[in-house]
């Protein structure tokens, strides 16, 4: 077991077979561009019929690239998607962010974009359920809901003209984050998908924010016991459930559950009381796996993460995941496995 690894500069990347990239290249060649990858200032085309999108600029009838990236065209719209760079929010993105400022009726949230995102007081679930009205006292005690440094997951509701995102947490799957660790990877590595929160083997869940902020946490204890727990907090409903009689809303979930869970507990700053060591180790292992994928510049998805986790099981001690060779070995394993399955 080495204490330290000191290596020279420059790491070799895991070689990715570029079948798919070749296809893309062929596609572009048909359109008359020299290559699908451009550098800043490189001329893309002199055909003025193209519409110029993001990452391009126009000078004396010629279109140039303003970033290093790959050319994308949607009918007549020509844009360059940068390889790296800041995350640019889009409506509907599931993001993880950190509160940086509490101001008048709004929180400013760091989501790794050019501007801080804005979360309005009106866009969060307040304790007391859906039918609750926002009052002045809520404005005064905004810090008791979310304060500087708090992590939350949210959805981008709209993006303003200058690129600042407006977030909302008006769903039970969004809100304050607990029971886990935070890790940041380049946002370009997060593959956009329908679902960004995954339950993984080993009682660990993960939220892969589209902005590259990732939250790894303990899977919530199953929904039924959870409802009972939160029901017992609410004394009235506890009494109702103890009596055998039918109670309105019993068995149905949606709104009543929202009502119950929208108690103060959604803004609690407490982790679970009994937190088994094995789950903590699993969380750390997943964190290592995410960093291994990022190190090899492999796009991160829920299923790849599970594969990486299984590949990492070869190493009994999680401290092996620190070394770059191990990270590259895991990356290679995943690519090999996907090739075998013909992806």
């Amino acid at each position: 077991m080495s204490v330290i690894s000191v290596t020279g500069f420059g790491h070799q990347n895991v070689s990715v077979d570029s079948d798919s990239e070749d296809d893309a290249m062929g596609d572009i060649e048909a359109t008359g561009f020299k290559s699908s990858i451009v550098t800043p200032g490189e001329r893309i085309t002199d055909d003025p019929t193209w519409m110029r999108g993001h990452g391009t600029f126009y000078l004396s009838n010629q279109t140039y690239s303003s970033v290093a990236g790959s050319i994308s065209r949607v009918s007549k719209l020509l844009s360059v998607i940068p390889f790296h760079g800041r995350y640019s929010p889009e409506t509907g993105d599931h993001v993880v962010g950190r509160i940086v400022e509490v101001s008048q009726k709004r929180w400013k949230v760091d989501i790794g974009a050019q501007h801080d995102a804005i979360l309005m007081l009106g866009s969060v679930n307040l304790p007391g359920g859906v039918l609750r009205r926002k009052s002045e006292s809520d404005e005064l005690q905004m810090r008791s809901f979310l304060k500087e440094g708090d992590l939350l997951n949210a959805e981008v509701q709209t993006v303003s003209q200058d690129g600042a995102a407006f977030l909302h947490t008006r769903s039970l799957k969004y809100g304050k984050l607990r029971n886990g660790v935070f890790v940041r990877v380049p946002s370009s590595l997060i593959v956009r998908a329908k679902n960004h929160s995954h339950d993984l083997p080993g009682s660990v869940s993960v939220i892969l924010g589209v902005n590259g902020f990732v939250w790894i946490y303990r899977t919530k204890v199953n929904a039924n016991t959870k409802t009972e727990n939160s029901a017992s907090i609410n004394r009235v409903s506890a009494q109702l459930s103890s009596s055998r009689d039918y109670t309105p809303g019993q068995g149905s979930e949606s709104i009543t559950r929202l009502e119950e869970e929208s108690s103060w507990s959604i803004y609690s700053d407490q982790n679970d009381e009994d937190f088994p060591e094995t789950i903590k180790l699993n969380i750390t292992r997943y964190r290592g796996c995410i960093l291994a994928l990022a190190h090899c510049e492999i796009g991160i998805t829920g299923s790849r993460l599970v594969n990486a986790y299984h590949a990492s099981m070869v190493y009994d001690n999680i401290d092996a995941l620190v070394s770059n060779q191990v990270k590259e070995a895991i990356g290679r394993d995943i690519i090999e496995a996907e090739k075998m399955r013909g992806k």
Binding site: V3, V6, F9, N271, F275, E277, R287, G288, D319, V322
Partner: peptide, 29 residues
Amino acid sequence: YYLLECLSGSKVIRADARRVDQFRPVEAT
């Protein structure tokens, strides 16, 4: 709290998976 709990226990679990006496990988020339 989570970090404190992991780091102050009898078995230390560092967030980056290192042992207590392990360095981060260094690049040098």
